[in-house]
Design a protein around this nucleic acid. Sequence first.
DNA 1: TGTTAGCACTCGGTATGCATGAGTGCTAAT
DNA 2: ATTAGCACTCATGCATACCGAGTGCTAACA
Lengths: 345, 345
Amino acid sequence: MLTDRQKIILSAIVEDYVQSAEPVGSRALSKQMRIPLSPATIRNEMSDLEQLGLLDQPHTSSGRVPSQKGYRFYVDNLLQTTALDQKTVVALRDVYAQRIVEVERMIQQTSQILSELTQYTSLVQVPTLREGKIKHVELIPIGNGAAVAILVTDTGHVENRHVKLDEQISADELVAMVNLLNSRLKDVPVSRVKSHLYREIAREMSVALEHYEDAISVLDELLKDNGKTDDKVFVGGTTNMLTQPEFRDVEKARPVLEFLEHGSQLQKVLPRFESGGMHVRIGVENDFPLLHDCTVISATYSIGQTPIGSIGLLGPTRMDYARVMRIVEYVAKSLSRAITEAKGG
Amino acid sequence: MLTDRQKIILSAIVEDYVQSAEPVGSRALSKQMRIPLSPATIRNEMSDLEQLGLLDQPHTSSGRVPSQKGYRFYVDNLLQTTALDQKTVVALRDVYAQRIVEVERMIQQTSQILSELTQYTSLVQVPTLREGKIKHVELIPIGNGAAVAILVTDTGHVENRHVKLDEQISADELVAMVNLLNSRLKDVPVSRVKSHLYREIAREMSVALEHYEDAISVLDELLKDNGKTDDKVFVGGTTNMLTQPEFRDVEKARPVLEFLEHGSQLQKVLPRFESGGMHVRIGVENDFPLLHDCTVISATYSIGQTPIGSIGLLGPTRMDYARVMRIVEYVAKSLSRAITEAKGG
DNA sequence: TGTTAGCACTCGGTATGCATGAGTGCTAAT
DNA sequence: ATTAGCACTCATGCATACCGAGTGCTAACA
């Protein structure tokens, strides 16, 4: 365990370094600090903190820098939450005041405001379809043997997919099929559609329709890879990354930006939302080696009491933890409230 | 007018510089060139070319670099189109072989393959809704006085919008309204919907429906800003920008990347597709001062004979014009063919 | 007259040496 | 336990010198 004085010093170093991005030395610290100590004393303490692995020294005779372990300790034990500045609160209130109905739009706005407020890169997971209940199914032929299949959930999500349509299927059969689908699928949670009802519907179809095989293949296509979309993640403010001194060098920044642009693995950057609550992943705590110099701060948002997604911020490990955690938490709460109001708990 | 020798020299300088990104000197040129000339002679010619404004000299006693005017001359007069390498042709054939039905998906793939092939940033305009004909209109209540309005065009585009629904509108009225809309709007080009049919439908509604005012407001909302989506541009390979030596410096790269990320003005980067054909905008020829060190090479693609959108590539003015123009042209042609086949001329 | 060899000159880039200053660790005094 | 003092380290900035790639110019040459 650390002495109180060590804690104060560690806090001071973290907070100073987060601001300046420069190694902090004993002299500067001794002036700035609430408990006045001579530089020499502070040096001794810093030396101890370094041996504990909480500080790093870029080179002999330079100031100290928090190690990842140091940040971890700071976050776990030293952090004191500051009040949100009024400007931030107002900005957020404005965003969620405008009663948006479309969830995607709300998510997108959230992503934008998060990165704007913090000047980091925001990650906002689009809520999965799984919990939505099917409200309507539609199948619209657009000629050339193609059709658009549309799926609407009670969360207002619209999923559309193009399917091939065998020419032999008549318009009547199509209508019958759509009716069947609607009557059987209405209010069924998307997650259950496939496993639970699939065979049942298929059987009914085989009875009711002549070209049921084609019909089934359509259904198949429609439901196939819903998994593809249900982990979509909105990214905002990727270029904010370039304002951070640690990414001043293009060769440092490029891999991370490429990773963000490619986006296929972004879901895995955020912790699974099922766990709920806030998460802070510092440096090597991230699964991707690419992000071993980055921190991800995330929180889950919910409809009512059930968590449905995560929002998060990505930045260098040298991050303004107090402020960002506060904001992420607050935004998650605001988003939850807005979604809950819009969609009902 | 330039002498033949000057042309050869200018060509050689452009082609060398495009590859190496280093100012090219007389010695290197004299070795590499097809017509063997001594460095001294070349120096004289280069001096002349500089006075003509076709070459720049970064500083006294460094090699020459093509000026923007030099690139322009090269593109207009000296460019000799090389055959596409087999790898490129194969890659493209593979992309368009897979008979994609969704236009958006096709566009997105095009954007990706373009940036992959060229290592520049690709811009692909999504074809406007305007030319599509309405195939189906649907209005699906999702509870809480909200509904999802869906619009399907014969190009397979699905537009969905959330609308508020006055509680007073009954289910029957809703059905009546949707039927009315469908019968009146079917096969009408989206561009005409608003101007031509709006009032007419409104009048019919006022007769047929009790709460026609609410109905109209719904219709209003649905059609409101279709303009919002019809100029969407897909961007691919933004991080490729960072591989270019001219953007090695973050402070150079950031403004451009921010511009690309923000994206609200991307439509204006590409020339209006109505003009058809290929366009090359070099440096200051671009409207945005931000892009005054960049070149945009673009071509239009069509359904049948009518152009419907543009594709383009963005890179530094030091660009491999021959290769890129060839690729853009070829991709535009391939995309046109694919879309035409999928949607019919 | 067009071409080329030769030469002086320019200038960016790299290496070197040196002074500066911020910062440390250690020791001895308080 | 704290701190003043001191020797030491190392990044940074600066002046200097040097090298090499490249030029412009002039004079010689075909």
